[in-house]
């Protein structure tokens, strides 16, 4: 996850950017292509299902909008957590880390209930048509990313709880934040191309 940088032997880098930060940016760039390929698959197969249930029959856009809003708010709390550690506010760090993890968990809970509803009420699953296949895999892999993020945040929370995150180590929190914001942005894209484009079909 993170590279140990020794205390008194901090190597200066060519660009001045920390190795780990560069790694995180490179990873996120690479992850863009991961989600890009999944989204491309979804878009290519949009409207190609030969049997139902179809997207407009199952989506509940107000419901998903709320969970999207929850995830967006978690980006705000993440920013507050980073700001807290940068000024050495341990209490703020703990509060906002926990808040971010909590909001992420609420989003995941929302996704869990949405999936269960689709399966049990709408009869949509991974195998019954192209929509089910592409929808669950795309949003599922996003959910997996959020889950990993929540685990990281909770790990940092536990560390902060034990007083193990010092002000000088704010880069750790910054990197977790980069990842978290990325996952949020990906959700905005997915929410748009998967849910919002169906809104006219649902209303009309």
């Amino acid at each position: 996850m993170a590279q140990v940088v020794s205390h008194n032997d901090h190597p200066t880098t060519t660009t001045g950017l920390d190795h780990r930060k560069m790694l995180m940016w490179a990873f996120l760039g690479s992850d863009c292509l991961f989600f890009g390929s999944l989204i491309a698959t979804y878009l290519l197969y949009r409207g190609k299902s030969i049997t139902g249930p179809y997207p407009h029959e199952v989506f509940n856009i107000p419901y998903t909008s709320i969970s999207a809003f929850v995830l967006l708010m978690s980006s705000l709390t993440m920013v507050l957590a980073l700001a807290a550690i940068q000024r050495g506010d341990q209490r703020g760090l703990k509060v906002w880390l926990l808040a971010t993890a909590l909001l992420g968990t609420i989003f995941l809970g929302g996704q869990y209930f949405e999936f269960t509803f689709f399966v049990e009420h709408n009869g949509l699953n991974l195998t019954n048509n192209l929509f089910g296949t592409t929808f669950f895999i795309l949003t599922g892999f996003h959910g997996l990313h959020v889950t990993v993020g929540v685990i990281i945040l909770l790990s940092f929370f536990v560390m902060a709880w034990r007083g193990r995150v010092s002000q000088t180590q704010h880069l750790n929190i910054e990197l977790a934040g980069l990842y978290w914001h990325f996952v949020d942005i990906v959700w905005i894209v997915i929410f748009t191309v998967v849910y919002l484009v169906e809104a006219p079909n649902i209303i009309g």
Binding site: S30, S37, L38, T41, L126, T127, G132, I137
Partner: peptide, 22 residues
């Protein structure tokens, strides 16, 4: 780092087709 994610997605899709029946 740019090409591997694409084949990763292709393999995940193929894997789900094979193991889960998507």
């Amino acid at each position: 780092v740019t090409a591997m994610p694409v084949i990763t997605v292709a393999l995940i899709e193929l894997g789900f087709d094979r193991f889960v029946g998507t």
